[in-house]
Amino acid sequence: MIEALHLSKRYGERLAVDDLSFEVLPGRVTGFLGPNGAGKSTTMRMIVGLDAPSGGSVTVCGQPYTQHGSPLSTVGALLDARAVHGGRSAYDHLLSLAHTHGLRRRRVQEVLELVGLAEVSRRPVRGFSLGMSQRLGIAVALLGDPEVLLFDEPVNGLDPEGIVWIRGLMRELAAQGRTVLVSSHLMSEMEHTADDLVVIGKGRLISSCTVDEFIERNCRTEVRVTTPEPARLVALLEEHGGTVRSEPDGSLVVGGLDAVRVGDLAFDGSVRIHQLVSVQASLEAAFMELTRSSVEYQASPSVGAPEAEVRS
């Protein structure tokens, strides 16, 4: 369990984290989402006491992280996979961390096997690919068999097999009753892994809810309809409270009415219909829309960007 209360972090003039309050529950995978520069990594560093909050507080299992008697078995964190001395072997890196809490060599071997690095564990880390470094970072996080796990962008650099593996691992860790907080700047990453979402932008909380609630609140269902008589259909639908806009391909997108209603109205008005589909805006699109105003570095719209992408 992680609880943040009015957490803030100021770097000079810039507020990296601004009055952030949220809860991360045990037994669930919580996706920590936000565009690049939203303050996710800063928040995670504050959770483990690497950065001191400028205001507010954050506790892990009821007390500040730094006051736990056995930090390694309280929180396992993967913050930066590349943060390993290149001249050291994976085994020695893990062993040096295991020693701090009196863990046995057997535990080091166990986590190495678990992440699939046992065979290369005696080689200097500088020869590792980014994917292998991620696996080593995950081994570090799992070393103390912790109650809470923090993963900062864990899929970076992993191959598809590795991505499937880490998704499974996170689900399994949560199923064992642990608290799992995973940051990402990609909603698609979280869609099938997370139970809960904490969405932030420019350091502020945008949304904290379950994935289902998020979809319900933010992903409107629309109806796409194709007809040879658009003018008549638009008039008919608008008369019954629908909002209609035309797509470049000639189809109409209807909001405010469901597919059944659209079909019935067309039938009653004797308008011919060639296609009628119910479309749910993707989670990704909802996330983009929600965080649009808080994206730190935004590219200007490219020439000829389809207007239809902007749903408002």
Partner: peptide
């Protein structure tokens, strides 16, 4: 083994061993 891992605590002696491991494990 997992239970054993949970029963551990952070000690100064442990950190000493850790630092010794760090210094001896670097060829440089």
């Amino acid at each position: 083994a997992a239970l054993e891992a949970r029963a551990t605590t952070l000690t100064f002696g442990g950190v000493l061993r850790s630092e010794w491991t760090k210094i001896r494990s670097l060829r440089s």
